[in-house]
Design a protein around this nucleic acid. Sequence first.
DNA 1: ACGAAGATCGACT
DNA 2: GTCGATCTTCGTA
Length: 175
Amino acid sequence: MLVHRTPEGEAAGRIVEAEAYRGPLDLAAHSSRGLTPRTAAMFGPPGYAYVYLLYGISWALNLVVADEGEPHAVLIRAIEPIRGIKLMARRRNKSADSRDLTNGPGKLTQALGITGADYGRDLCGLRLYLEESDRVPGRIGRSARVNVDYAGDWAKRPWRFYERGNRYVSVRPRE
DNA sequence: ACGAAGATCGACT
DNA sequence: GTCGATCTTCGTA
């Protein structure tokens, strides 16, 4: 579960889709282009948020996961709304039962109220953190990552993971 | 200072 | 399925 608490209230969802980015070797990872102001958080210690603006439109959330100096991160691509669903629906201007609420990296950040202000956020703090879900997970599928064709052979690596059959998974797998 | 390229979304057909 | 929106980041000069 991914949980975000703001003055507006709490919103939380089960992570049902994620992708691994293994810089600096992985050419699909932003960190493959080196340490810049934008990618600095990825080069830092694990347990912090790497947030970036996508296409000038949407925010995307990554969890920094490897030791300091190892710029690896996990992109959260979809969640299944569990708590604060009405708040998410209001933020998204969608109905509470719409799968459009959180079925994409830019949609779930909007639903949870995550923006660039959360860059570098401590994931073990009180505001943005992970929590054990009490639900039994379904079967996990894997596939190539989405929209990283520019990365050559790295684009083919099956480093996208999702819960099979979950309606909040963003893109239907090709296989 | 300029320009190109996005780890996407939403509207539309 | 296609297509335009929108703006930060970073390489280059």
